[in-house]
């Protein structure tokens, strides 16, 4: 402890105040009484929380976001797990390049990706809006899946796979009976990370939403443009609650050290 001086402790405290305070401010504001966002509020109520459920657009887009995030994550898992398995398990020429290719969607500016998909899927191919939205989300969360699954496969001892084979399991049985159960925490964490990123996405959705099909973050952005009441703050608090639960699951499954060891 003697390496940490008093000034360093104070500095760290201030930096963390910077990280935490805005979210605390939102939370306190959400419990305000007045029509306007005010911190600290003059009086407290939960009317804006109730109001969240009154705004029909929020409820509808929440369900759409949920649906898109779930389906996109599911498809990304179906596509991503086998790919992550092969690039972690086997050594072959071009493996590194392929890995970079699978992770490349994070390198593309999302707004550019959204615009390009919009141009291609909606304008050129005339796909339904929802399909386009789903495809966009699936592609951009594939890297999250591949990265998390690869990380948990890195700790997987392939000798136990050989053990299963020699005791009579074929390759497919081995995968489902031995490999999958041992990376289940990675699958859960990958699901949640992908889910959160899909659920929170704006830049891709902003191009791929259309008449009748919008997501919650998009709806929140347009709400903020016109109204400045604590409804959004209340909704934010509810979303933070969701984040808390999901983070808890990640902590349980993958361990938060995943975030510091990229």
């Amino acid at each position: 402890m003697n390496e940490k001086g008093k000034s360093l402790t104070l500095f760290t405290f201030l930096v963390y105040l910077f990280l935490i305070a805005p979210l605390l401010i939102i939370t306190v504001t959400a419990f305000g009484q007045s029509e306007f966002l005010k911190f600290p509020p003059d009086s407290f109520s939960i009317r804006w929380f109730l109001n969240v459920f009154e705004v029909e657009m929020f409820m509808r887009t929440f369900l759409i976001s949920l649906e898109v995030a779930c389906i996109a994550t599911f498809i990304a898992l179906l596509v991503g797990i086998p790919a992550a398995y092969v690039i972690s398990r086997y050594r072959f020429r071009g493996r590194k390049i392929l890995e970079s290719f699978f992770l490349s969607p994070v390198l593309i500016p999302q707004i550019v990706f959204g615009f390009s998909l919009f141009n291609y899927l909606v304008i050129k191919l005339r796909l339904p809006v929802f399909t386009g939205l789903l495809i966009g989300h699936t592609i951009f969360i594939i890297p999250y899946i591949i990265r998390v699954i690869s990380a948990s496969l890195a700790n997987f001892d392939y000798e136990i796979e050989e053990a299963a084979v020699i005791f009579g399991a074929n390759r497919i049985k081995t995968f489902f009976m031995i490999v999958l159960p041992n990376i289940s925490s990675g699958v859960v964490a990958g699901f949640i990370l992908a889910f959160i990123n899909s659920f929170n996405n704006v830049p891709i959705s902003v191009f791929l939403t259309g008449p009748g099909v919008s997501t919650l973050p998009i709806q929140m952005m347009s709400y903020v443009e016109y109204y400045f009441d604590p409804t959004i703050a209340a909704l934010s608090v509810l979303l933070m609650g969701m984040t808390t639960v999901l983070m808890f699951i990640i902590e349980r499954s993958l361990g938060l050290s995943y975030f510091t060891s990229k």
Partner: peptide
């Protein structure tokens, strides 16, 4: 992990 909309809104 919190929505960028929420964070910017704050």
């Amino acid at each position: 992990l919190t929505s960028p909309v929420v964070r910017s809104f704050s």
